[in-house]
């Protein structure tokens, strides 16, 4: 298991290198530069700026310099916000994005798993059709529709919750977390339901029932572990998706998260910021995928066996 983890971690290094290389090439080939604007900068000004940001060096040298700085943990200064460094901006945005992601994931997990279990216990009944239909709507409804709808309902008509902000006024974290988590909750509900259906027909469940265990014990201690396996394999990419894909929700609710930086950086041609955030997200995605694989191996004895076999 440890060896498996180590191999996975080592394999991530070349992946990251290529992420840097490809992103670097892409941002430098994209038309338009960081200093292009309506008011065209004079050649003297441009020269000064290019020198400041090492853009006057040959492109290969820029890449080598960038990677050298990167290895030392220096993402460089932001092109758009000259008084902030990329690391500074990432760390500010990250904590918010992480917080939002965790709440959304918690919401998605709790709501998704509960409705999935409920639906899976009584398949093809109202208890199944109702939540599953709602889940289907949840999957289909993109967050940029769901967000404003929730704001209109809870923020403006009912005046229960603030319409925007993050940590500015009480309760303003609720709507963004629900908006972001809703689609995932729906997915998880469907996955759990199918997992439940699968597991509930297994022999060991029948045995448990035959032992005379009450239903909640059967569900919690016997069925759930198996039923949640597909959810766990989904949770890794989902966690990464929640973090990197939160920019829509961040924009709707004016949340100072990393997603918004990422989007703005691309539009601003803020080279160092695009690279910094891409690398950061790449690391996150790789990490969560590895974590999900490890968790999966832990809940699924068959997989654990085969891994052990492989590493021998």
């Amino acid at each position: 298991m440890l060896r498996y983890t180590l191999i996975r971690l080592l394999a991530a290094i070349p992946v990251l290198f290529f992420v840097v290389l490809i992103t670097f090439t892409l941002v430098h080939t994209a038309p338009g530069g960081p200093f292009d604007d309506e008011r065209k900068a004079s050649p003297e000004v441009l020269e000064g700026l290019n020198r400041h940001y090492n853009l006057d060096a040959p492109i290969q040298k820029q890449f080598v310099d960038y990677v050298a700085n990167l290895i030392q943990g220096d993402f460089g200064p932001s092109f758009k916000y000259p008084n902030r460094s990329v690391s500074e901006l990432i760390s500010t945005g990250m904590s918010t994005t992480l917080e939002l992601g965790i709440y959304a994931l918690l919401f998605a997990m709790c709501l998704g798993a509960l409705t999935g279990i409920a639906a899976g216990l009584k398949p093809n009944s109202l208890q199944d059709y109702m939540p599953m239909s709602i889940a289907m709507i949840g999957i289909c409804l993109p967050s940029f529709v769901m967000g404003p709808l929730l704001v209109l309902l809870f923020g403006i008509y009912l005046e229960w919750l603030p319409v925007a902000g993050w940590g500015l006024s009480p309760g303003d974290k609720l709507l963004p977390s629900i908006t972001l988590g809703a689609a995932y909750a729906a997915y998880i509900a469907r996955l759990t339901r199918n997992g439940m259906l699968d597991v509930m027909s297994q022999d060991y469940i029948r045995t448990a029932k035959a032992k005379g265990l009450p239903q909640y014990r059967v569900v919690i201690f016997h069925a759930l572990r198996g039923a949640l396996a597909p959810v766990i394999s989904f949770a890794g990419p989902a966690a990464a998706g929640l973090l990197s894909g939160s920019f829509v929700v961040e924009t709707i609710y004016q949340i100072p998260g990393l997603g918004r930086f990422y989007l703005q950086a691309a539009f601003n041609r803020d080279y160092t910021m695009i690279l910094g955030t891409t690398i950061f997200f790449a690391v996150l995605i790789i990490f969560f995928n590895i974590l999900a694989d490890i968790l999966l191996a832990w809940v699924n004895p068959k997989l654990r066996q085969s891994l052990r076999g492989n590493s021998r």
Binding site: P148, V151, L152, G155, I156, P162, V163, A164, G165, T251, I252, Y253, Q254, R260
Partner: peptide
Amino acid sequence: PIEGEAAEERAFRGGQ
């Protein structure tokens, strides 16, 4: 820094 005209109009209506 509220980006998006619709978002700021909502913020205005919501008393932000």
